[in-house]
C-alpha cells in the first residue's frame, strides 16, 4: 500500500513534468472555454435547447480531457514504459506489477477531475455558468466515461508494439473524435451525415452522457450511452488483459 501511494505520487509528478500532457489536460480546455466564451458569450440559444455555449461546453470539454488522457496520456505512457524496460525493471521487485497500472490510472483520473474543476471554476466565475444536474450523478458519469476510455488506452498500449506507433494510432483516433463527437464543439452544428459518423465514435457516448447528466437528465434517459460505455469498458479490459506484455 505504501509503495502504491508512493508510486501514484511519483506518477503525478511525472505527469505534471511532461508539458504536453499537462497542457492538454489542464490548460488547453480552459483556454478553449475562454476563446468561445469571448466569441459567443453564454446567452441562452434556441439551437442549444435554451442553454448558452459555456453551459454545454463545460461537460463537452470534460469529455475532451477524458479522450486526451486516455488516448495520448495512458496509451503512450504504458507503451513507452514497456519499450524502455521500465515495466521489466519493476517486475524484478516484490511490488505487484499491477501497482503501476493502478497508479497511472489513478493519476490520469485525478488529472481529469482537476481539469474539469478548472473548467467549472472558469465557467462559474467568468460566465455565470448554469448547472441543473446533480453533482454525484455527474461524477458517476465522469467515472464511467473516463474508465471506459482509459480501458481503450490500455488496449492501445497492449496492441501497439512501440510507443511511437501507440502515439500515431492514438492521434489518429483522437483527432476525429474531438471534432466529430461533440467534444470540441456542439454536434448540433454538424451536418446530419457527419452526425451519423459520430455514432461510431466511443467519445460521442461520453459527451452525450455528460451533457445529459449536466442538465439534470436521469440515467434512465441514457441507457444507450451507458450500455455502449459499459461494453467498451469490459471489452477494453478483456483485450488489455489478453494482449498486455511486460516487455
Amino acid at each position: 500500500m505504501k509503495s502504491l501511494l508512493k508510486m501514484t505520487w511519483v506518477e503525478a509528478k511525472l505527469f505534471l513534468r511532461e508539458p504536453f500532457g499537462a497542457f492538454f489536460t489542464l490548460v488547453f480546455p480552459v483556454g478553449l472555454l475562454f476563446l468561445f466564451g469571448s466569441i459567443y458569450g453564454n446567452e441562452p440559444s434556441e439551437l442549444l435547447g435554451g442553454r448558452g455555449t459555456i453551459d454545454i461546453s463545460v461537460p463537452a470539454y470534460t469529455a475532451m480531457i477524458i479522450a486526451t488522457t486516455s488516448l495520448m496520456g495512458l496509451g503512450i505512457t504504458m507503451a513507452a514504459y514497456r519499450e524502455q524496460g521500465v515495466l521489466r525493471r519493476l517486475q524484478t521487485t516484490p511490488v505487484s506489477p499491477l501497482a503501476i497500472l493502478v497508479a497511472v490510472t489513478a493519476v490520469l483520473f485525478g488529472m481529469t477531475l482537476v481539469g474539469m474543476a478548472l473548467l467549472v471554476l472558469a465557467g462559474r466565475l467568468v460566465y455565470q455558468m448554469r448547472f441543473e444536474g446533480q453533482l454525484l450523478s455527474v461524477l458517476a458519469g465522469l467515472m464511467l466515461g473516463s474508465l471506459s476510455m482509459l480501458s481503450l488506452g490500455f488496449m492501445l498500449a497492449g496492441v501497439m508494439r512501440t510507443a511511437r506507433s501507440a502515439q500515431i494510432v492514438g492521434m489518429v483516433l483522437l483527432y476525429p473524435m474531438l471534432f466529430l463527437s461533440g467534444a470540441g464543439f456542439p454536434r448540433e452544428l454538424l451536418p446530419a451525415t457527419i452526425q451519423k459518423v459520430s455514432a461510431f465514435l466511443p467519445l460521442t457516448y461520453v459527451v452525450n452522457l455528460l451533457r445529459g447528466l449536466w442538465v439534470g437528465e436521469s440515467w434512465g434517459q441514457h441507457t444507450t450511452n451507458v450500455v455502449v460505455l459499459s461494453v467498451l469498458l469490459v471489452a477494453g479490459l478483456a483485450i488489455s488483459a489478453l494482449t498486455f506484455r511486460w516487455e
Binding site: 505504501k2 509503495s3 508512493k6 508510486m7 511519483v10 509528478k13 511525472l14 513534468r17 511532461e18 514504459y81 524502455q84 524496460g85 521500465v86 521489466r88 525493471r89 521487485t93 516484490p94 511490488v95
Partner: peptide
C-alpha cells in the same frame, strides 16, 4: 532497462526502497 526520463535520482531511490 531504463527509468522514466523525468524521474529524479532521489525519487527513483525513494520509490524503489518502498518496495
Amino acid at each position: 532497462s531504463t527509468l522514466p526520463e523525468r524521474l529524479k535520482v532521489w525519487e527513483a531511490l525513494d520509490l524503489y526502497s518502498s518496495f
